[in-house]
């Protein structure tokens, strides 16, 4: 199987810890269900991610240096 995370189109995906998640949600003042979604069977999802987890994605941004976004894992 090909290591998808090595592809240049795929940014870094990491599972967010609970306390970090709290910080993010308070910062934006949102619920976790307001976040963009990522499917459970997504090819780039880390192996240890489960439904309900939030994934932190660090993209090389076109407009700034790096941009950090979050996605909620859904069925």
């Amino acid at each position: 199987m090909v290591d998808v995370s090595q592809h240049e189109l795929v940014p870094e995906h990491t599972v967010l810890e609970d306390d970090e998640l709290e910080e993010v949600l308070t910062e934006y003042n949102i619920d976790r269900t307001d976040l963009p979604k990522i499917k459970r069977n997504d090819a780039a999802l880390p192996d240890d991610a489960a439904v309900g987890d939030v994934i932190r994605i660090v993209r090389d941004s076109r407009t700034t240096d790096q941009s950090v976004v979050y996605r909620l894992v859904v069925e």
Partner: peptide, 30 residues
Amino acid sequence: LEIEGVDASRTTCNNIHEIHRNLGIEAARE
């Protein structure tokens, strides 16, 4: 991507669904 000799880190295609299937939603966005 599975073929020997193919650089699986740079190869792309112009079908966004194939990219989504093989590399995930973030790659599809890109």
